[in-house]
Write a protein that binds this DNA or RNA. Structure first.
Lengths: 129, 129
DNA sequence: ATGGACCTTCCAGTACGGGGGAAGGTCAAG
DNA sequence: CTTGACCTTCCCCCGTACTGGAAGGTCCAT
């Protein structure tokens, strides 16, 4: 199947498929005599996997690591577990950072909710921030 | 004062100050006869304001909006409140997205904690993701 | 007068995951 | 035979907030 067909089947764009190939996430497809890429329809499952990885917040580089292990004939379970572990800790750090930020921003917004502009001086630009 | 001095006083770099000027966050400084920027030491409070805005998660573009209002002679309280309001909703959305993501990733990692590689088929790359 | 620390401008690159659009080739239908 | 939809490669662009470095000018102390 051609690039556009596979893209539609896998819920992405032809442009993105060429990008994935360039990045080593997809193997170089067969070519027709005229130079068109000719994909095995099975490639769609690989793209699905990429999408699942992205949904888990993995970067394309991390997804490629898993794919490379699998392509090397090994089973990537251990590496997947490690990546998920690291990703989980990272997400938790992001959450706690955002919760602190939310509290700070909420306090600022509450202070700014009933502004007293006359108490502001131009020097500090805005005393509510 | 010169760029480097102001940068040190305000806890940033000379390079960043030039960048801020280029982006319209700092007014173009006076120049000495030889072309060096010659800042009013008061500029440091403006940089402090930029830092406070960043600490609240505002983008430089948003901070510039506030600065522009203040520079136009108006009092930016209302706009600041609106920006903080939008920012707060955005942070809350990010937090809830991340919490969902954390739950998903945690479930995946738990499933991958005791892998059964033999139940994997190469087609789906990794059944734990 | 010379060295080093500072300043200037301009161009380029970082990470991330693509998107836009040009210039040209190909395929199938009418 | 032409039209329109698709494909190819190519290179540049998006946003975000800077950072690095080259080439050259300046300031101050020795």
């Amino acid at each position: 199947m051609r690039t556009g067909e596979l893209a539609e089947a896998a819920g992405t764009t032809a442009k993105t498929l060429r990008f994935y190939e360039e990045q080593g996430l997809l193997p170089a497809a067969e070519r027709t005599a005229s130079g068109y890429r000719d994909y095995d329809p099975e490639a769609a499952t690989r793209i699905d996997f990429i999408h699942r990885g992205q949904a888990a917040g993995l970067t394309l580089a991390q997804i490629k690591q898993i794919l490379d292990i699998r392509d090397g004939g090994e089973i990537p379970c251990g590496h997947v577990r490690d990546l998920l572990d690291v990703r989980l800790k990272d997400i938790e750090r992001q959450i706690s950072d955002l919760v602190s930020l939310r509290d700070n921003v909420a306090a600022l917004r509450d202070a700014a909710a009933e502004p007293e502009p006359e108490t502001c001086n131009a020097d500090e630009v805005c005393r509510y921030l």
